[in-house]
Design a protein around this nucleic acid. Structure first.
Lengths: 223, 223
DNA sequence: CTTTTTGTTTATCGAATGATAAATAAGCAT
DNA sequence: ATGCTTATTTATCATTCGATAAACAAAAAG
């Protein structure tokens, strides 16, 4: 008497399925992002495999080591999700400055204020000594410095090429960034539901920011 | 031929020393704070023991499990380091409001802007689902709500007992808190040296905060 | 249908890790 | 000195975990 109920296989219902390597690799990478965001990089490869409904050694066919998989996660989240168009938004002088800032920060917040981004960034910071500093250096160069240049221009101050960005200026920008980033920390790390709409917080913060930064800008140039 | 060079012992130079249990327990707890702040709670008990110059099983004479040791670390840092005098500072109406706020935030920053506090709080948040929310609830009740009550009083607005704290008000306080906390994140998690003096940042943030919150306070009471 | 290729699983290794039990020895009491 | 208490160490267990090798099987090639 052979087992009557199964058509072809011995594993429960789902059949072993062979996927195209590039497709499988993408599936693993995507799940790894979600998985490590939840458990941190100490999360076990066996558990990740279970969530993928594959066996653990299969991971090693696509990634030579756990560390390589983590590198891929970094790439997937911190590199791929950066949008070059943001730099264009900031410098587009056909649009009012405040509008540009609000648009940039709304879009940027839309990307980083996610469970995956916030938690992975924090896990990386606590573990890896280089990644976050590298990312924030990029953020400073591609966004913050351009942003200060635009503010200088708006208020008729010297270009940052002629007069370097001051500590006070960059500190104000960090403050604005902190306020937005911290929303993600509250929500995704402390599990505290936000009571307010993120976009309106951003609008308010940008308004306060623009009001405050004017007073600490360098003096107007005397020709 | 006996070994000639050793006076009494076989372990290198340092003698095995018996300490008073309460003293040993304190030493372990203190080192555990520093250790887990650096490596996170996945740090190994053997490595901790090595730093303490004791053997790993000795840890289990003083703490029944690793988890119990971690609980002790929480206690040591997040409970013991809170100073009840802070609540008195906030509510002491013989001192100007702004002075009180600056004094409170300077002292509070002095405690939480440390390598141990910031990193342990973040590690705890990423792992434990309850601790941070509990701590921040306490912070809100013992400091933030009192602070808003004082601001209301200062500007002649209804007491928070008669008119509950609004979302906008508490959100502004969170924003101030975020700015200060984020200094610690930058320094101790991202390893980015701060370019400015913390106290002057706090002074500036408090000033901006007091200037901004006035406009979102509830209307004056109409008797 | 038969053979080949290769995606996937089974079995297993070796090191790491939290924890326990028994042996050792430091310091005090007598 | 001798013996007792107990702080500390040695030895070891049971899992966990990243990683590897070999066996299996699905799909394509001939």
């Amino acid at each position: 008497m052979k087992k009557p109920n199964r058509a072809r296989s011995r594993t429960s219902i789902r059949e072993q399925q062979r996927l195209d390597p590039s497709e499988r690799e993408g599936i693993i990478a995507r799940e790894a992002v979600s998985f490590f965001a939840e458990y941190g990089f100490e999360g076990q490869t066996r558990e990740l495999a279970r969530r993928l409904r594959i066996t653990q050694p299969l991971l090693y066919r696509y990634f030579p080591s756990k560390e390589a998989l983590i590198e891929r996660v970094y790439q997937e989240v911190f590199v791929e999700r950066w949008r070059p168009s943001w730099e264009a938004i900031i410098t587009d002088r056909s649009v009012p400055l405040k509008t540009r800032l609000i648009q940039f920060y709304r879009e940027y917040a839309g990307v980083i204020l996610t469970y995956e981004w916030i938690r992975l960034f924090m896990f990386a910071g606590l573990k890896d000594l280089g990644l976050n500093a590298r990312y924030l250096k990029m953020l400073r160069e591609r966004a913050f410095e351009k942003l200060i240049e635009e503010i200088r221009f708006e208020y008729g101050r010297p270009s940052t090429r002629d007069l370097p960005i001051t500590v006070l200026e960059i500190e104000m920008v960090w403050g604005l960034h902190a306020a937005i980033f911290y929303l993600g920390v509250r929500k995704f790390i402390y599990s505290m539901p936000l009571e307010t709409d993120v976009n309106s917080i951003i609008d308010a913060k940008v308004t306060t920011f623009l009001g405050g930064i004017r007073s600490i800008l360098p003096a107007k140039e005397t020709v």
